[in-house]
């Protein structure tokens, strides 16, 4: 029973990582950049939903929608102001700019909401009791897993069936050729950032409900772990991000429960290193042989 509850907690945490990793992987696939500010967009999403629920008194679902709207606008703004002028610049320059954006968001949140951790009331506070109360599952865990599966299916359909999704795949394959086929590359990239940021808002609400606290640095560590998850599954691949996130969450929960609380992150990262040594392009990543 203990094992089962750890497993459920791991899957729920893993689903959050997966949602964040989906945003990472989409942006990476199309813009070939590590968007370090993604974790901080999650944090902004958390704060917006918190303010919406406590100060404005909105119901949770409205708060989530508001957070998504704000983060989408924020994502498009960040892309337009900070990343678009650097298109074609060395990838490290874009990386440093992303780090600058990340510092900016963290410090802006610090100025607006203060450094003290805020208590975050879960969007689905009750727990489901099974087997005469031996196994209790928080509703928010179920909600997280459900949200993750829905998002994953929706994204797969979106990139596979719709015109915009196909444009995204074309851009991630070859920007030049996509442009020649009449695809508006800039608009497609903005759209990717918008979707990624909206996902970040959802992840923010779920993450804060899981942790029940929120502060300006909340997003950075889950951001790094989700990035790890995206690489783990094969960066650029949507099912890879899903699988990577889920595995990472389960490994982390198990390591915390059975091996060592202190070394849980180390164990996660050690597994990542071993996987990358065996499969250098991640679990589901395509290995592209070099041509001379």
């Amino acid at each position: 029973m203990e094992f089962l509850s750890y497993l459920i907690s791991g899957i729920s945490l893993g689903s959050i990582y997966a949602i964040i990793a989906l945003g990472y992987t989409m942006v990476y696939g199309i813009a070939k950049m590590l968007n370090f500010a993604h974790g901080d967009v999650i944090m902004i999403g958390g704060y917006v939903s918190l303010v919406a629920m406590t100060s404005l008194g909105l119901p949770p679902i409205a708060a989530v929608l508001l957070a998504m709207a704000v983060c989408t606008v924020l994502g498009i703004l960040i892309e337009g102001l900070a990343y678009k002028p650097l298109r074609g610049a060395p990838s490290l320059a874009v990386l440093i700019t992303a780090i600058g954006v990340s510092y900016f968001l963290q410090n802006a949140a610090l100025q607006i909401w203060g450094a003290n951790p805020r208590v975050y009331a879960s969007v689905a506070p009750d727990t489901l009791k099974l087997f005469d109360g031996q196994l209790s599952i928080p509703y928010v865990s179920l909600l997280t897993v459900a949200a993750c599966v829905v998002i994953m299916i929706a994204l797969t359909l979106f990139t596979g069936k719709t015109k915009m999704g196909k444009a995204m795949r074309a851009c991630s394959e070859d920007k030049g050729a996509a442009q020649l086929m009449g695809i508006d590359v800039n608009r497609t990239i903005s759209m990717t950032f918008a979707i990624g940021s909206a996902l970040a808002a959802v992840a923010g609400v779920l993450l804060c409900s899981y942790n029940s606290t929120l502060m300006p640095t909340t997003g950075s560590m889950p951001g790094i772990k989700a990035f790890t998850a995206a690489v783990f599954g094969g960066i650029g691949s949507i099912p890879g991000a899903f699988l990577g996130g889920l595995l990472l969450g389960v490994i982390e929960a198990m390591a915390k429960a059975y091996i060592s609380m202190q070394l849980a992150n180390s164990i996660v990262f050690a597994v990542l290193i071993i996987v990358l040594l065996v499969r250098p392009a991640g679990l589901l990543g395509k290995y592209v042989p070099e041509k001379v």
């Binding site: 900070a82 002028p85 650097l86 700019t97 600058g100 954006v101 900016f104």
Partner: peptide, 9 residues
């Protein structure tokens, strides 16, 4: 942060 972004831009 703003200085960093502006310098990179």
């Amino acid at each position: 942060a703003i200085v960093l972004i502006l310098v990179m831009l």
